[in-house]
């Protein structure tokens, strides 16, 4: 059997394998040894080349990822603006500070649309997007390749009908964006 199990019985294990993938955190100074490593390591925090341990640690990190997803499900991960317009109103998907440009453009042009802004991109809050699956939608983003649009499609399957992209190093200009949104939604 692996050495580390034999040697570390009953001791604090910084990287203990747990069902949730999360191990308890301690801070120095304490009588326990707290080792953090930039390399693949065992439960004690000592570097390892052992394929069994390395696999277990990868699985641990995946479990931790899933635990984070579960935690996120209890938190606000998406901002929905103008939700009161109801289910039939069109949706604009955007993220980051572009959201503010979109909101201003809608106000400026008196355009009725909901704005959906995920505030987490990884893990992507897919569970929040079922409500918007079958709605007319567009994507607004600062990107030549449509990175956000592709991410949205990959994670949720949502295919926006149109997109507005900008990539000239300047933020969106409200009058122009307002006009573009109106055309895209028409």
């Amino acid at each position: 059997m692996l050495d580390y199990l034999k040697h570390t019985e009953g001791e604090y294990l910084r990287c203990k394998l747990t069902d949730s993938g999360v191990s308890s955190l301690k801070f120095p100074p304490t009588d326990s040894i707290i080792k953090f490593s930039s390399y693949e390591h065992d439960e004690y925090g000592v570097s390892t080349e052992d394929p069994v341990m390395i696999s277990k640690m990868h699985e641990k990190r995946l479990k931790k990822y899933n635990s984070i997803v579960e935690k996120l499900k209890t938190m606000k991960t998406v901002n929905v603006y103008n939700a009161s317009l109801g289910k039939d109103s069109p949706v604009i998907f955007t993220y980051g500070s572009t959201t503010m440009s979109v909101l201003e453009a809608l106000k400026f042009g008196n355009i009725k649309a909901r704005v959906v802004q995920p505030i987490y991109l990884e893990p992507f809050p897919v569970w929040e997007f079922d409500n918007f699956a079958n709605t007319k939608s567009i994507v607004v983003e600062q990107s030549v390749m449509g990175s956000f649009e592709r991410l949205l499609k990959e994670k949720t399957g949502i295919n926006a009908s149109k997109y507005i992209r900008k990539y000239d190093g300047k933020p969106f200009e409200i009058e122009t964006l307002s006009k573009e949104i109106r055309e895209a939604l028409s």
């Binding site: 120095p28 100074p29 326990s32 953090f36 570097s47």
Partner: peptide, 28 residues
């Protein structure tokens, strides 16, 4: 106290000392 001595190391043969010393810290 040895609990008040923290260690860190870079990468290379020297860095292995981090794994060998039973002290807390970061393998950087």
């Amino acid at each position: 106290k040895s609990s008040h001595i923290l260690i860190t190391a870079g990468i290379g043969c020297h860095g292995k000392i981090f794994d060998y010393l039973n002290l807390s810290g970061f393998y950087s």
